[in-house]
């Protein structure tokens, strides 16, 4: 599973079987799970270290050549921005692949949370994309090919973290926009993403995902009282390359506290598994019904049955 992506393998097998049936090989997907490439990289986001300086936002803007922001990146008033009657804080969009939000947990100091793509091991966006625009690279990044994006926005529906955004304002080339772990410019070359590089507090620790899991647990153990005992993203939704440590319960800092450990694709496996069955069973079953129905008719009137047959199978005037 290292050199060839699972998707590619499946795609190839599908291409091979496409001649036989339209959808048969989809069953292949319904088996097995993928827990990430062994040497995939990741980032450990330690919310206890983040001071909300927004340097990561600035670095992302520069690295990804995004449009100028509405407010300077040293303007901390953005933390007071809310949307939809105060129900929503800022979220990543086509102009900002990462944002930092401030939370005020009950009776505690403010906690800052950086939001960006978490680069799932089994990304929902990837598994829901009908043009296979997404790729989970060996390095751990979830990247996408805008050149094939049709703009159905299913990945946005599927993403449990509300990450992919769409350039709704574009009329000629609207595409999905999201954090790509600085794959093209940095990760591919063994460099950490721009946000990690700029972080003055090392709130973002870049490393091999498997090492980060150890480090994360070690921090929880060695600093009793500093963290809640949960490494968010280690197992959640099949595991993510970006993981979080927080000083307070995760629902207090905007996380879904109970996303489950199953990757999103497991929810559709049942359906995908029934596809070949329907394809195989339905034709026989309904042709059978048809024959039965005709037999019944012919029971009382054999003469008529013969005529009906002709009438049905191509009889004209």
């Amino acid at each position: 599973m290292s050199g060839i992506s699972r998707r590619r393998f499946l795609a190839a097998s599908v291409a091979g079987c496409a001649a036989t049936t339209l959808a048969g090989p989809r069953k292949a997907l319904a088996s097995g799970t993928f827990s990430g490439y062994p040497d995939g990289m990741g980032v450990l986001v330690d919310l206890t270290r983040c001071v909300g300086c927004r340097s990561c936002e600035a670095a992302c803007n520069k690295e990804q050549k995004l449009p100028a922001p509405d407010r300077p990146f040293d303007d901390m008033s953005v933390f007071d921005e809310t949307f939809h009657d105060g129900k929503q804080k800022r979220r990543p969009d086509e102009n900002a692949y990462t944002v930092v939000n401030r939370y005020n947990p009950e009776g505690g100091a403010p906690v800052y949370r950086k939001v960006q793509c978490n680069h799932c091991n089994e990304p929902a966006c990837l598994s829901s994309c009908f043009v296979n625009a997404y790729t989970k690279t060996e390095e751990g990044a979830v990247v996408y090919n805008s050149k094939v994006c049709v703009g159905c926005r299913t990945c946005m529906v599927a993403c449990p973290f509300h990450v992919p955004a769409y350039s709704y304002s574009s009329s000629l080339d609207p595409v999905i926009k999201k954090c790509i772990f600085c794959y093209d410019t940095r990760l591919k070359n063994g460099l950490p993403p721009a946000c990690v590089d700029i972080c003055p507090q090392e709130a973002l620790t870049f490393g091999k995902r498997k090492d980060l899991i150890k480090i994360g647990h070690q921090r929880i153990e060695t600093h009793p009282g500093r963290y809640v005992a949960r490494l968010y993203g280690e197992k959640e939704l099949g595991g993510t390359s970006w993981m979080y440590l927080a000083p307070v319960a995760f629902d207090q800092v905007g996380f879904d506290p109970t996303p489950g450990n199953e990757p999103i694709i497991n929810n559709v496996k049942d359906f995908l598994g029934t596809v070949p069955m329907v394809l195989a069973i339905w034709p026989a079953m309904f042709t059978g019904f048809h024959l039965l129905a005709k037999k019944q008719k012919g029971h009382d009137d054999h003469e008529h049955d013969a005529e009906q047959q002709q009438g049905e199978d191509g009889g004209e005037q």
Partner: peptide, 10 residues
């Protein structure tokens, strides 16, 4: 880098 010169527009 911090784009301190952008004019804040609502």
């Amino acid at each position: 880098f911090y784009q301190i010169n952008v004019v804040h527009a609502e």
